[in-house]
Amino acid sequence: MAEQDTVRVGAFTVGMAEAEGWVRRYFDESRNREVAATGGRTRPYAYPVYDRFAAGGAESELSDGDLLAPSLLNASLGIRAVYNLQTLRPRLEKGLAAIPPTLTLTDAAARGTLASLLTDLFGVLDGPDPAVGLGLTTLSKILHRKRPLMIPLYDRRVKRCYCGDSGDHPVEPVSRSAPDGPFYAAVAAGIARDLAEQPVQWRYLASVAPADVSLLRVFDVVAWERGGTRDA
């Protein structure tokens, strides 16, 4: 199979035709709205309700609505987490302000600023007073909407793609015992490398998604689907 007939996500590959099908299905707004209206066992995907959620916060501001957006990606917050996010809001907004809205993940990696920017931002989860009820998955789903070009979504399926003990996984499992900020930055660096080394594949996959969808959002759909397969 030709190299460009597949796309790599961390330790795994998937055929481009299958990846394209995942992207087209996930970002089919008409289909998602129809499924939501009819009920039944089939569940709609979160586009566009998560992506266009009118939270009211500016680019570097986190409104209370922004804090609740992860529930649209099945990462509901408890009351403790909301209280703790409100306490962390000034630090999070400072970290967001340090990231230009137009900065992409691959550009930050090329400039050598990826690790510092993301470690500082997600470092709010580290330290002697961790935020009860808040973890990497939820925080990434809050912050991705504010910097969709720079901040990747993270969950257990993305972790399967990027963190493991095989030689193909870019992040070793021992790294998961490290603080959250550096760990997340290491996963993001692996994602940036995959995007930079496969520009043709990712440009094509992004082209079949709606115009308001970022490359990192498209990437997450492919990684989420691939990380959920039986051999992942």
Rank of each mutant, 00 (worst) to 15 (best):
E93P: 01
W202N: 08
A19N: 02
A185L: 05
Y45H: 11
L136G: 15
F27C: 01
E3I: 14
E29I: 10
D168R: 15
R157L: 12
D5Q: 08
P44L: 07
T13W: 07
R156H: 14
S140A: 04
G112I: 11
L77T: 15
L125K: 08
G135M: 00
V132C: 12
A19G: 03
V132L: 13
G78T: 02
D120R: 10
N74F: 15
E29P: 03
A206K: 11
G56V: 03
S76V: 14
D64Y: 03
G15V: 01
N74K: 15
A37E: 14
W224D: 09
S207Y: 05
R147P: 07
G133L: 02
P101L: 07
R111Q: 15
I99Q: 00
G95T: 01
A54T: 13
A97E: 04
L103N: 06
G228H: 01
L139M: 00
E18V: 10
A36E: 11
V187G: 06
R147F: 08
S177W: 14
G181V: 01
G15E: 04
Y184T: 07
G228I: 02
R25G: 08
D212C: 02
V9I: 12
A206D: 05
V23F: 05
V124T: 11
K146N: 04
A232E: 08
A186M: 10
R176C: 14
V49M: 06
R217S: 00
S60F: 13
E29W: 02
L118C: 09
L125W: 04
L103W: 09
W22C: 11
V7G: 01
T42C: 12
K141H: 07
E93G: 00
L125Y: 03
V35E: 09
A2W: 13
P199T: 06
V208H: 04
A131F: 04
S207P: 03
L205D: 07
L96I: 11
L73P: 14
S76Y: 11
E61R: 06
V221K: 01
A36T: 05
L73N: 11
W202E: 04
A54M: 10
L73E: 14
T6R: 15
P199L: 04
L153V: 03
T104Y: 00
P70M: 04
R52L: 13
G57H: 05
Y162G: 05
L72F: 14
A131E: 09
A178H: 13
A109W: 08
S30M: 12
D231M: 11
S63H: 00
Y26I: 09
A110S: 15
D129P: 03
T137R: 09
D180L: 13
D155C: 07
A115H: 15
C161T: 09
G57I: 00
G164A: 03
